[in-house]
Simulated assay, not measured.
Amino acid sequence: MIINVQGLKKSYKKQLVLKNITFQVEEPQIIALIGPNGSGKTTMMNCLMNLLPFQEGEITILGKKNTDPSLFYEVSYLQDNRVLYGDLTGADHLNFICHAQKLPARKAKEIAAYVGMDKYAKKRVRSYSLGMKQHLLLAMAILNEPKLILLDEPINGLDPTSAIHMRHILMDLHAKGSTIIISSHNLEEIDKMTNTIYFMKDGEILEESLEKLNIAHYSIYVSNSERARDIFTTNKLPVTMEADHFIFSEADLALQQVIDTLNENDVKIRHIENKKIGAEKRYMELFESELRK
């Protein structure tokens, strides 16, 4: 078991921020944590990493209580750039981690080159742009090749090229066996890299499979909707009829089967629209009231 969270509750004074959070991660995957600011994403990450106390619940990481000091060598947490020291260089940060993690000094240079910051590793962090700081934070997070990595807004401040490079790095780490939990507002990138999405709303988790979100939904416009309605009713096909078109999911019905059925019955197809739910659309459904505000 990689992560086991049972009945996690966290309050700030009288405000309940995390409400009975329960979930398990049994095998390596990339999990996205999505929700509006203030929904509890960072609080939950801090609780997982034993940086915040909580009122109720139990957390185990890699079969150990999250308070076990030995987890320091097996997990990593990329926080925001406030953890960086402006008077130190990027190399200073990486060398310190090598020393603390008992890693060979050469790892610092290797990881700097791997994430693409070797050209400015010896510059003081106070001179770094936001994107450069994100590169350094990523290098620090993956230096010890952790089994579990938590990343809080790692794509923030990155240009498209750097964002794509980071996505490839994270997917490569996952392919090597790491589990990654990533909090991000970049829903387009989330759709491309994650296996599972945890939407956080009102201090609770709503789990969604990305496979489910990426199932195609078709809208087909036809020349004779009444005729089409009769055909689908007779054949007991799972479609939803609208005024001049009908809708169905690829999970319930193959597109080619629908096309063949219509052609066999001389119903002309005018137009086919292919849509996926995706993280963004699901977010809009869940947080409609927040979006209106």
Rank of each mutant, 00 (worst) to 15 (best):
I2K: 04
L8N: 00
S11A: 15
Y12F: 09
F23Q: 04
V25Y: 00
V25F: 05
E26N: 13
Q29T: 05
I34G: 00
P36C: 07
N37I: 11
K41V: 08
T43H: 10
M45C: 06
N46C: 02
M49D: 11
L51W: 08
P53W: 09
F54Q: 06
E56K: 14
E56P: 11
I59G: 04
I59A: 05
T60V: 03
I61H: 08
K65L: 04
K65I: 03
K65Y: 14
N66C: 10
L71C: 10
L71F: 08
G86F: 07
G86I: 02
D87I: 12
L88R: 14
T89R: 14
D92G: 05
H93K: 02
L94D: 01
L94F: 01
C98K: 06
A100D: 04
L103Y: 05
L103G: 01
R106I: 14
A108F: 04
A112L: 03
A112D: 07
K119E: 05
K119R: 12
V125Q: 02
V125C: 13
S127P: 09
L136K: 08
L138M: 15
A139T: 08
A139S: 01
A141E: 00
L143R: 09
K147S: 10
E153T: 00
N156Y: 07
L158R: 03
T161V: 13
M166A: 15
H168T: 15
L173Y: 06
H174Y: 14
K176M: 01
G177V: 07
I180E: 00
S184M: 14
E189V: 15
I190R: 03
K192N: 13
M193H: 12
D202P: 07
G203K: 11
E207R: 10
E207Q: 13
L210H: 03
L210F: 10
A216S: 13
H217E: 11
Y218C: 05
F246R: 08
E250M: 03
A254T: 08
E264V: 09
D266W: 02
I269Y: 00
I269G: 07
R270Y: 10
A279G: 00
S289H: 12
K293D: 10
K293Y: 06
